[in-house]
Amino acid sequence: DVEPGKFYKGVVTRIEKYGAFINLNEQVRGLLRPRDMISLRLENLNVGDEIIVQAIDVRPEKREIDFKYIP
């Protein structure tokens, strides 16, 4: 289970104008929005990159997770 405030290693699987989709595993995916990136820009991410993200909002009923990147 993903818990708000905890850090997780994930893989960038898709990049859109509104953010990057990060997979923690095959069943768990969330969104990293540009506003939640500190010292990292969306255009510097590539599909396949491994990054450490912090879960900031977890909505299991909608199967949605918002992430934050903190270097």
Rank of each mutant, 00 (worst) to 15 (best):
R35P: 05
F7A: 05
R41I: 09
F21N: 02
V11F: 11
S39Q: 14
D49V: 05
P4T: 14
E43G: 10
A55N: 01
I38G: 15
K6Q: 11
F7G: 03
I65L: 09
G5K: 06
L45R: 01
D49P: 01
E64P: 03
R29D: 06
K17N: 13
E3Y: 13
G30H: 02
D1H: 15
R29H: 10
K6E: 09
V28E: 06
D1T: 14
R63T: 08
V53W: 02
Q54V: 13
L42S: 03
D1N: 14
F7E: 05
A55Y: 03
E64C: 07
Q27I: 13
A20T: 03
R33N: 03
I70V: 14
I52K: 06
Y18M: 06
Q54P: 01
I70C: 08
D66G: 07
I65A: 06
L42K: 04
Y18W: 14
R59C: 04
Y8H: 02
A20G: 02
E16C: 09
P34V: 13
I38N: 12
I38L: 12
K62H: 09
D1G: 15
L31W: 05
I65E: 01
V53R: 00
R41Q: 13
K68M: 13
S39N: 15
V58L: 06
K9Y: 11
L42Y: 06
E61T: 11
F7D: 05
D49Y: 07
Y8G: 00
E16P: 02
R14K: 12
T13H: 06
I15Y: 01
Y8S: 01
G48W: 08
V58R: 05
N25H: 09
V2I: 15
I65V: 11
L42Q: 03
T13M: 09
P71K: 08
P60V: 12
K68G: 14
R63W: 11
I65G: 03
D66W: 09
E61K: 11
L31T: 04
G19Q: 03
Y18I: 09
E50W: 15
L42W: 05
L42H: 04
M37I: 06
G5N: 09
I51Y: 02
R41S: 14
A20H: 01
S39T: 12
K17L: 12
I15F: 02
P4C: 10
K62A: 11
A20W: 03
R14A: 12
K17E: 12
D49H: 05
G30D: 01
Q27N: 15
I56D: 04
R35D: 09
R33M: 04
N44R: 08
V2A: 05
T13A: 10
V47F: 05
Q27W: 15
S39A: 13
N25W: 12
Q54W: 11
G19E: 01
N23S: 14
L32G: 01
N23C: 09
L40Y: 04
A20Q: 00
A20K: 00
V12L: 03
Q54R: 07
K6Y: 09
V53F: 02
F21Q: 04
L32R: 01
